[in-house]
Design a protein around this nucleic acid. Structure first.
Lengths: 146, 146
DNA sequence: TCAAGATTGATGCACTTGCATGAAAATGGT
DNA sequence: ACCATTTTCATGCAAGTGCATCAATCTTGA
């Protein structure tokens, strides 16, 4: 049974703050990436998944699940990644409908360049503002929400 | 001086989790709103600001600051709100360039309808998953990030 | 084995967003 | 008072997203 009680004041505040913090930080990250002449964070996320998948590659549907994006959106994101030379589509050897995605060397280079900017931005705007041990506490608090 | 040390593992985890939780929950909220035949959350945010501004109304530039949206985006959001009858643009009496935005009665009705769905979704997917006192702790941890 | 249904991925079309720029009014320095 | 600058808001055009739907292939059950 799902609870149906009213939201407490503190719960609303926590939710609002969570929302504000994450959108604001995402905003900063996107701005920094753009300022550095780099693509959107979504490209990073996608390429990172492909990178992790390694030689075996990843199927679009799996990428979709990881990224919480609608199918058509993934399809077009791949279009652009492939167009830019950061990933390739390979026909799936066993499933004639599907394909396998792999990151290219250029893609790996891009990931590293993006990570430098990403890491710095998160360090400056997130990590450095937390007190000692707070990151761990925050992670713990958020765990049940996943 | 901004810190430049590497990110600790726990900090990365906290950041990733924060991101995941907020985007996932936002996703659910948007889906629930749509399922209820209601507009996007952005409309709620905008109308709520206008509602809070009361009789005096709000200038587009102020709305923009609150909502963290680019100027052109706010301009067009207002177009749609006005087109749908939820808000009105009134020429600013003293500043000939500007205008004042006011929520309409229909807008107030919409807010209430949206809040019911919004509240329920946040209660079910956020508040109810937190332990006793965790909302307060979460809010405290996030405070310095604002 | 074969037809019904499910799964995988792409795409046409309408709408939204991003970017650059514009027009109109206000402000500020001389 | 006047011109240059700034502020406020809108908009044309390109790019991205949402939605519905499609074609191709795979799976399942009789």
């Amino acid at each position: 049974m799902t609870e149906d009680r009213k939201l407490e004041e503190l719960e609303i505040i926590a939710w609002a703050r969570l929302l504000k913090v994450s959108t604001r930080l995402l905003d900063v990250v996107e701005r920094e990436l753009k300022a550095a002449g780099l693509p959107q964070l979504a490209w990073y996320d996608a390429l990172l998944e492909l990178h992790r998948a390694g030689e075996a590659g990843l199927r679009p549907a799996d990428l979709q699940k990881e990224m919480l994006l609608p199918q058509y959106n993934v399809s077009r994101l791949i279009d652009r990644l492939e167009g830019a030379g950061y990933a390739v589509r390979i026909p799936h050897p066993e499933d004639g409908r599907g394909q396998v995605l792999q990151i290219t060397e250029a893609g790996r280079v891009l990931i590293r360049r993006m990570w430098r900017v990403y890491r710095r931005t998160v360090a400056e705007n997130f990590a450095s503002k937390l007190g000692k041990g707070d990151a761990g506490r925050l992670a713990e608090l958020l765990k049940p929400l996943l």
